[in-house]
Write a protein that binds this DNA or RNA. Structure first.
Length: 472
RNA sequence: CGGGACGUGGCGCAGCCUGGUAGCGCACCUGCUUUGGGAGCAGGGGGUCGGGAGUUCAAAUCUCCCCGUCCCGACCA
């Protein structure tokens, strides 16, 4: 029997669809204070998986985790002119505590360059102390005018890396390494989301940075989402926080610093890059639940449940994150729909009829296809099948993005192309004036790329392309 | 913060124009029948109608102010 769609179709109203997914899949809701967010268990489990994957990659680059305070003396923010200017509109400031007014107000960190800079200055004395590679997992607060769950909330969770280096070249290559080996690798390999890596224009640069690198992804509505950034801060922060060292010749020198981060915004990216009209689609490598084994219904002796349990155990033995769903008191259709909403990559349906034929029905979430499979070899085939789903999701997302990317020659064409996707235009043709012109129509330069599609060494060199789009 | 739309049980809505102090669908609870794609029947619980002030014998309904949500702009991970 035909049922009303569970979610507002994407084609009808994408923002509404997004809201529906958050609600129906029990992912997140608004907190009581405007702009704040409650992350529900299933979504938080996905975030924890992101954290562990990203954290491992960060550590592989040599950085170590530390923790710095939530509250920062307001004066710290004022030391770097562009930095304050960039952040002051969105600062939350604590002026009273312990029942009285504070001598110096404390800002709730919007990012931690300033406190960390203060401590780096203490810890770095010699070139032997460099590079100093720090990272922290924390919450930050940036008061937002237009909050949207996961994409733009006043408080969000993230990782912020802060490093100090002896030379500009070392800082630059490290910032680049984070972008490629940590962020892009994670997004492509785990999230199955293709990203453009490139450099930001001066207009889009981080407050206080000399260079900002970014990973940009396309959502299913053709809009862009910045999924991660890595900044070269030059000596701006080193200068104001006095992060210096003695080089091997005994000369006093100033450090070169970087900072880089990814946040809970990636959850929004995951939802909007892969989700379809049936709900979320989670790539297997990220999925907290990779396979759900559903007992369709059970016989009197419980043999279907027993067989399902055996399947789950076999999969678990192979390292698959498998879960049993034996809530036979809940309608099958309801449970199936619910797992689809939650985007579990693979569903195995087992009922008396299957068991009698020694088969089970295997349903793929990514392709919405299903069919019977012999029960004996099933568990053993799952790891490969999950790999196939992972690859297929990335291929799909890449194809979708490329189909919605257009090479254009002028502003008018760019505006038209960005109605449905990305436009690529020669940076030399667009220029700062063109960028401003596009901005008046809410279209921005997402990043600049060299001819090979990589981060350009010189943004103003010939052959550099601007990827422009509407963005979240 | 500028423009637009909207706030009515958990969610989605009707009622408002033409004031008479709430109703529908889903969800929830109980029972029975069901269970291979969001079940059926019967019974039941839950709402100071976003908040405040005003008009009135009487306000979800009319007036004013505030708050919030969503969309479109200015800013950002």
């Amino acid at each position: 029997m035909a049922k009303a769609p569970v979610l507002t179709p994407q084609s009808e109203d994408f923002p509404r669809w997004y809201q529906d997914v958050l609600n129906k899949a029990s992912l997140a809701e608004n907190g009581p204070v405007r702009g704040t967010m409650v992350i529900r268990p299933y979504a938080y489990a996905l975030w924890e998986r992101m954290v562990s994957e990203v954290d491992a990659r960060i550590k592989a680059t040599g950085a170590e985790n530390a923790y710095f305070p939530l509250l920062i003396p307001e004066s710290y923010l004022h030391r770097e002119a562009e930095h304050v200017e960039g952040f002051s509109p969105e600062l939350a400031v604590v002026t009273h505590a312990g029942g009285k007014e504070l001598e110096e107000p404390a800002v709730v960190r919007p990012t931690s360059e300033t406190v960390i800079g203060e401590y780096m200055a203490k810890w770095v004395q010699s070139y032997r102390d460099l590079p100093l590679l720090l990272n922290q997992w924390a919450n930050v607060v940036r008061w937002e005018l237009r909050p949207r769950l996961f994409l733009r909330t006043s408080e969000f969770l993230w990782q912020e890396g802060h490093t100090a280096h002896a030379t500009a070249a070392d800082a630059s290559s490290y910032a680049r390494r984070i972008l490629d080996e940590v962020y892009a690798d994670f997004m492509v390999e785990v999230l199955a989301i293709p990203v453009h890596t490139g450099v930001k224009t001066a207009a889009e640069r981080f407050a206080g940075a000399i260079n900002t690198l970014a990973c940009e992804a396309m959502m299913r509505d053709g809009k862009a989402l910045q999924m991660g950034t890595s900044h070269e801060l030059g000596q701006n922060f080193a200068r104001v926080f006095d992060i210096g060292f003695s080089d091997s010749d005994g000369n006093q020198q100033l450090c070169w610093t970087t900072s880089w981060g990814v946040s809970t915004r990636m959850m929004g990216g995951l939802i909007m890059a892969h989700g379809d009209d049936s709900g979320l689609r989670v790539p297997p490598r990220l999925a907290e639940v990779q396979v759900v084994v559903m007992v369709v219904r059970d016989g009197d002796d419980g043999e279907v449940s027993d067989a399902a349990r055996v399947l789950v155990q076999r999969m678990a033995d192979l390292g698959v994150r498998a879960r049993l769903d034996d809530r036979v008191d809940v309608q099958f259709g309801r449970r199936a729909t619910d797992w689809e909403l939650k985007g579990v990559p693979l569903r195995v349906e087992l009922g008396p009829r299957d068991l009698a034929e020694s088969t089970a029905v295997v349903a793929r979430r990514d392709t919405s296809t299903k069919g019977p499979v012999g029960i004996d070899g099933l568990a053993a085939s799952v790891p490969d099948l999950l790999d196939e789903i992972q690859a297929s999701m990335l291929a799909d997302a890449t194809e979708r993005r490329d189909d919605h990317t257009f090479d254009v020659a002028g502003i008018e064409e760019a505006l038209e192309a960005t109605e449905t996707g990305f436009a690529r235009i020669a940076w030399a043709d667009l220029g700062v004036e063109g960028e401003a012109r596009l901005a008046s129509d809410a279209v921005t330069v997402r990043c600049l790329q060299d001819a090979a599609g990589g981060v350009p060494s010189d943004p103003d060199a010939p052959g550099v392309t601007a990827i422009v789009a509407r963005a979240y």
